[in-house]
Simulated scan of single mutants.
Amino acid sequence: MNAKVTWFDSLLTAIILLICLTVILPFLYIIAVSFSPPAYSMAGSFFIWPKEWSLDAYYYLLQAQTFLTSVKNSVYITAIGTCVNLVISITLAYALSKKFVPGRKFMLLFIFFTMIFHGGMIPSYLVVRSLGLIDSYWAIILPAATGAFNIMVIRSFFQSLPESLDEAARIDGAGEFRILFSVVIPLSKPIIATFALFFMVQYWNEFFSAVIYLNDPSKWPIQPLLRQMVAISASNISTDAALDAQMAANLGPNVQNAAILLAMLPIVAVYPFLQKYFAKGAMLGSIKE
């Protein structure tokens, strides 16, 4: 027997549809503007369907050296940063999941402390500068190489694995590294894939650290350049970058929106390969079984 639809169900459905529209419509508008000629996009004479289709914005971006360089920089930072983050988070979480590790409780307390208290922007900048990392990609990668929340969740997942697996591997003569790479990691694909996606999105969307630590605009990732294309401030960038940004502004919002779409593509392309692990991995490790 079908359940009766109440007024609350109808209201909830309407609210969900409204929220979906507030997310989808701006995205459709960005797509429409990116495929529209500059004259129509500047005039704002359409909403989600262009009056005329054009690929000029994409042709320009794929020939603009500054844009291509920033994409290459973002790919490099994301790839290296994700690998570093995974290695540090997994190895540290695995060590903290073992009760026989000396000083385990102190390290857990120390890590938890960083979730509550943080030195702030100025001390972080002074540390990065003292290490000689200014104007280096490592200034973006190393300060974000791991996080207390990530370690806690991955550690909780490792603790939920049966201890009998470790014991059987030790009886066969396996060491801790062999157990980690041959037993634990193959069983941890959902949680690893989930955090890999989190780390990739984090590094790909990096903006604040890049602006602070990278003085050379040729090393900028994609996000600072997008900001520069949307809000031109040529006095803060080099001549070539200023030229590209100014040309983008002259071509109108179609180039700006095309750049936004192209910047989204890598993450959107990777997500389907990790999606089958994402729903499961997002829940695993949140509570200890």
Rank of each mutant, 00 (worst) to 15 (best):
P123N: 11
S124Y: 01
Y125G: 05
V127Y: 07
V128L: 04
G132M: 11
A139Y: 10
L142V: 15
L142Q: 03
L142D: 06
F149H: 08
I151C: 06
I154F: 05
I154C: 05
R155M: 15
R155S: 13
S156W: 03
F157T: 02
P162D: 04
R170P: 00
I171C: 01
D172L: 03
E176Q: 14
F177W: 15
F177A: 14
R178M: 07
R178E: 13
I179M: 02
I179E: 00
I179C: 00
S182D: 10
P186W: 08
L187R: 13
K189T: 11
P190L: 08
I191W: 07
F195V: 02
A196P: 05
L197C: 06
F199V: 03
V201M: 12
Y203P: 00
W204A: 06
E206G: 01
F208T: 13
F208P: 00
F208L: 14
Y213R: 00
L214R: 04
D216F: 06
D216N: 15
W220G: 03
I222T: 05
L226M: 13
L226Q: 09
L226C: 09
R227C: 11
Q228G: 11
M229L: 14
V230C: 01
A231C: 02
I232T: 10
A234W: 09
N236L: 12
N236W: 06
N236C: 00
I237A: 11
D240G: 10
A242K: 02
L243C: 00
L243A: 13
Q246F: 14
